[in-house]
């Protein structure tokens, strides 16, 4: 049986193990060769689809990013190498979008971690009504983001919305800071349950006996949580943080519906979309795509190296 079928308990990080595990150079038997062939055959459709839809486009966007390529002026297409990068990186709108994205990401993920942990503890420990809590918390996870975003938009629209009324009818979505707060709120509402579920899975890994032992040793509830629960579920926390951070960094749907990126509330995804679909400027849009890709890669790398999150590619690492 292959090593992947055994329980893989490796949790702390090693470098991404992308290469093929070293194999003995023994002559392959008939059965072994058949097994390899079957393995490749079964994986082929999935692998080919993923490579076809991501591999070539990634290369293609690199190429596009080095061209002047504006669909409004197709005749002026030419190779300009890194000029697009200079244009984007010296553009204040781009930097504003970067800061907005980073700010939203940091704030929402931090709040989600705290709320999610509380929710996870409630779901894990609840004496009564555990089923109801779990069912209802899945609704924000499952609901279409655009639907939720509209609900929030109408709630904050003066005249129509109950929340706007409660705050005295001030239009909140037309000013940068209040608008960003509303966007953050919508994000937090939608994704906290997912965070909570991942954390709850981690909580389930903390042996009850350990907590009882700590209680016997005289630890208070808070001490047990900080000194026993959190360290043991650290891998689960880091995986949840990694996934949520990368996910938050791509924020688009909520922003599109709530502010459409006006008043300087664009995220990097929003800005890219506007350049691409509204502006039809493929060169600039692709440049932004590449830059976002690099930023995401850096975030993932930092998580894996610094925090030792289970590495992508290690068998069970960080999957969901």
């Amino acid at each position: 049986m292959s090593h992947a079928t055994t329980e893989d308990t490796a949790t702390t990080g090693t470098a991404p193990e992308k290469s093929v595990a070293p194999k003995k150079k023994a002559a392959l038997s008939e059965g072994k060769r058949a097994e390899r062939k079957l393995g490749w055959l079964l994986c082929a459709p999935a692998a080919l689809t993923m490579i076809a839809v991501t591999g070539w486009p990634i290369l293609y966007s690199l190429l596009l990013s080095m061209q002047r390529f504006d669909l409004k002026f197709p005749d002026r297409t030419e190779w300009i190498w890194f000029d697009n990068y200079v244009t984007v990186l010296s553009n204040p709108y781009w930097w504003n979008a970067v800061w907005v994205t980073v700010l939203l990401t940091v704030v929402t993920v931090a709040v989600e971690l705290v709320l999610g942990m509380a929710l996870a503890l409630i779901m894990h420990r609840a004496l009564v009504g555990r089923g109801i809590v779990r069912t209802t918390t899945l609704i924000p996870y499952g609901i279409v983001t655009v639907v939720a975003a509209f609900s929030w938009r109408f709630a904050w629209t003066p005249g129509t919305g109950y929340l706007a009324e409660a705050l005295g009818g001030e239009p909140v979505l037309t000013e940068k800071i209040p608008a960003l707060l509303v966007v953050g709120l919508a994000e937090i509402w939608k994704t906290t349950p997912f965070m909570a579920l991942l954390l709850m899975a981690g909580l389930a890994l903390v042996p009850d006996d350990l907590l009882k032992a700590a209680a016997m040793d005289g630890a208070s509830g808070w001490q047990r949580f900080i000194k026993i629960t959190v360290p043991i579920m650290k891998p689960a926390i880091l995986v949840a943080l990694l996934f949520r951070t990368l996910d938050a960094f791509r924020i688009f749907d909520n922003l599109f519906v709530l502010t459409a990126g006006s008043q300087g509330t664009s995220s990097v995804s929003m800005l890219t979309y506007n350049n691409l679909i509204k502006g039809l400027n493929l060169g600039i849009g692709s440049t932004m795509s590449v830059l976002i890709f690099i930023m995401v890669a850096v975030i993932a790398f930092v998580f894996i190296k610094l925090f030792g999150t289970a590495a992508p590619g290690s068998d069970d690492g960080g999957k969901r």
């Binding site: 070539w56 486009p57 596009l64 849009g285």
Partner: peptide, 13 residues
């Protein structure tokens, strides 16, 4: 973990 927006431009074209 891929930023989906990075695929939007090339896929569009």
């Amino acid at each position: 973990m891929f930023p989906q927006v990075s695929l939007v431009s090339p896929l569009f074209e």
